[in-house]
Amino acid sequence: MMDKTVNQKAWFLVLPVFLIVAFSAVLPLMTVVNYSVQDTFGNNQFFWNGVGWFKELLDPSSDLGGRFYASLARNLAFSAIILAIEVPLGILVALSMPRDGWRVAACLVILALPLLIPWNVVGTIWQIFGRPDIGLLGYTLNHMGIDYNYVSNEFDAWATVIVMDVWHWTSLVALLCYAGLKSIPDAYYQAAQIDGASRWAVFRAIQLPKLNRVLLIGVLLRFMDSFMIYTEPFVVTGGGPGNSTTFVSIELVKIALGQFDLGKAAALSLVYNIIVLIVCWIFYTVMTNVGVDHTKREGAV
């Protein structure tokens, strides 16, 4: 056997990537880390504060901690609600889509439309749509005797933000599920027919298990997106009424740009980031394990 040649020059090949990542990700992140352990009173003068901001952030009795936990709770509730609506609805839409013919293309285009609209435009559409004075939805609802006003009523504000997100993103789940359904071979349906399976049994025994993986991806995407949501609720409700639709990202922008509390904002964004990373990691682990299950063979019968 020949010995491997040792040649450290290969590191130079990695250098460009290293530099790009450093400038685009590591350095900005480190700036944030830097802010998170310091305090400033302006004039570019900084004082060491150690983990002070983190302590305050994670202490529910402080003003910062209270706001953080409240917005985090709102954000998790929001994500849970939209997932509970969008996933079943997306599956339902995918199941009722045509299998072939020109109607497939028509359905795909219609479904893709909301996905193509810029987020702040979606916000603006719904902001106007829901206005009681000139908005089609708001005007109609109020004329039907339903007192609907997303500016003053918390429930109405939540309902608007949720319906808007469902309108915007259910298509994504539906398209993913449709792709998943298309990949099921006909033989499965024929076999189920012969086995006398009802529509529900076909769904439970064939379609849902085969949708497993795309659904995981769909849930991951929708969770991350809704957990980091900023633009649409900000445009529609601006976080109000009161703080009722202030999600973590809105809170973060308020602290960083509204109050210019750089230290607090930096600590918050790091914690926010860590939560996102942990959730991603959990999903990634689950997904790769699902993949392993399909390829691993345990002995013959």
Partner: peptide, 16 residues
């Protein structure tokens, strides 16, 4: 009628 297909069709989530 019962029919067995060219490629095995099994219901993944169920036991044998």
């Amino acid at each position: 009628i019962a029919q067995v297909f060219q490629f095995p069709v099994i219901y993944d989530t169920m036991t044998v």
